[in-house]
Design a protein around this nucleic acid. Structure first.
Lengths: 213, 213, 213, 213
DNA sequence: TATGAATGAGTATTCATTCAT
DNA sequence: AATGAATGAATACTCATTCAT
């Protein structure tokens, strides 16, 4: 893993693997798992078919690696961003902001991510790369712990922290997914602001409140 | 269309079509579009392969009919429920409640519905049965109009009604989707309550507020 | 067969059969045997599928009936025309003229006729409706007998009459077939003149001869 | 294309392709396009089904390649044979002789060749491999030019050279086609002699002429 | 006789995967 | 590691034919 210690062979190998992963991500995102063929990936990656198989045991495996890589990237980014704040409410805001920003940037991953919501469609039973799932679950656990803290310190309503975490996560996903249907890619800041506002303060007007927009 | 006027032949024909649609819905929901074969559907429906094709021109067509049928059912149900209330806020609540209730009941449709979020995966370009899409869009327009009214009468914050409608719709979907990952099918009432509370009043505690749960 | 003696039922039956034969001929000629479906024929004939089968045991049978009908028509016409002349050479000319005229008129039959040159393509073994074959063979036998007579009386060169009959028949067919490839349907008279001239007097110029055209 | 420069891989590849073409030719000739299945071809060629498709995009393509290959062979052979003579009449004789000899030798191609006379049956519209058609057309053009020359120098009657070329071509085809119906494969020399005699000098006896056979 | 729904064997084609070089 | 020819199971779809009404 440490580049400096690699032989040239090993270095090139890693480059090739990354290259293939990148190509595969684009194609899977664009056309979905079943409608992307290994041959297409090979052609686009400018490698022979056998070479792809030399690096990834199977199409399924390649797909998993793609998701895994991206998921870890997402989780790392979001956790790091959350760490830049201290109060639970700010951390939650950061969760929303950074997740949405990431998905906004990585349109192709967003596509695959949505596809994976539909777990059972691929193999029977298990949804997705265990590694990816575990990584993402750790993020949700982290969010839940932050929520728990917020409830304890009184800055959040006393709701079931698990449900709330799932809901916050779901809402951000849902908003991002709705982008996929739009003709134009909306500015992420505005969308984030609405989601955050909604989650923390709701859509309803309190007697004493005034316009927001 | 009028049952009384149908010949026996026509009556049976309709029954067979409904039967096949039902079987197909279950299988598509369970295993996804690509991993469901026409032969499997035929076998389970206890018809010959050719018979399925006699009623639905292609696998794709069959799939579309399934979604179309269910989508129209969902839209009709939700609009009818909303009509039972008058104030915008109550109507929004009804939207959330009835949509979630419908998806809670129709687990297999929920699966297909999610799959279809991921538009481009099937055809290139268009997502889904135009009929289904148009039906659903009319529901969203209705919701938007209600929101607009709520804003005008001052019971909702002044946000972009389109964005808000998309977000409310997305949130309910997101919550329902999250069910798919759980081991146990959660009671719909509790889930609905959280979603509604969140959307209308948010997760944050106001100074003067007390515990909710 | 005698219309006057038929019941209405029988009369209608015959009309339906003729109608179907006509439709089938057009379609077989246009698209060939394999690319014409029974359903298409039924649809175009405005009968139900089962009705076609009620009249013709199978697709093959229907096809044979079509060819049979037309072949008999061709043979009857040519023999009758030949009978209008007495000298062998005139009879041969009449054979060429009338056969070419018939094929010129019945473009769709011409197509099927050509297809049938390629005997083995349909069933293994036998080419075509025995009835049609026998009918056509009787025509060729007749032509051969005329040739024999011509040779005996010294107006034709002493060639093998069978080979010559086959060749004359083949030539007329060949010329007709060549029409199929042309953009415009050529006038039958000119074509016939060339074929006749060629067959009887050849393309070569004799010392004493002058231009023909 | 240069055998010496090929890698073993490429060399084998070409051999396999030739082998498949040979097998396919035999089967298409024997049973026709529609009644030959790709599986049969694969089985007979002792390759897996997929391998056939790896070399020929589709059944249609394979069929076209077969005809193309053979047509080019026929054209090359005939043109080369014609070139061995100088006078137009001798060249025409050579055309007849060599074309008939080729078809006599390549019975299976003869079958396919006939089938292709029936243009519209396969595709709608265009008949056959453009390459094959163009190749054959060039042969006919060549023949026409030779005829034109013969007319100019006075050794041929002054007929339309295009029509005459088509007719000569048609006659040779017609004779060859007639073989397909015979029980025994007739000696090519005798058949050729009749055809040539007929075309050049006709069947009719001139006053001063005597027996030929 | 006429109908048309039902049947199921048959077919072209695709594509993940293997393996000898 | 890289190559790409070969494999063959899998799959959507067609269509001649049957048969109950």
């Amino acid at each position: 893993m440490v580049a400096g210690k690699m032989t040239r062979r090993e270095r090139e190998r890693q480059q090739h693997i990354s290259h293939i992963l990148g190509v595969a991500e684009g194609m899977f995102a664009e056309k979905g798992f079943f409608q992307t063929t290994m041959r297409q990936i090979a052609r686009k990656a400018e490698f022979a078919l056998g070479t792809i198989y030399a690096h990834f045991r199977s199409k399924r495996r390649l797909y998993e690696k793609v998701i895994e890589t991206q998921t870890v990237g997402l989780v790392d980014f979001v956790i790091q961003e959350m760490a830049s704040r201290s109060s639970p409410r700010d951390q939650i805001e950061k969760f929303i902001q950074s997740k949405m920003a990431f998905l906004h940037r990585n349109r192709s991953f967003l596509r695959m991510y949505v596809a994976e919501l539909d777990a059972p469609r691929l193999d029977s039973g298990q949804v997705l790369p265990k590694a990816a799932r575990e990584s993402y679950d750790s993020l949700l656990h982290h969010l839940r712990d932050v929520i728990r803290l917020g409830i304890k310190e009184g800055s959040l309503k006393s709701m079931n922290p698990d449900v709330l975490a799932r809901t916050i996560d779901g809402l951000t996903t849902a908003v991002a997914v709705s982008w996929l249907r739009l003709r134009t890619w909306p500015p992420v800041e505005a969308e984030t602001r609405v989601a955050t506002e909604l989650l923390l303060r709701g859509a309803a007007v309190r007697p004493q409140e005034r316009d927001l927009a």
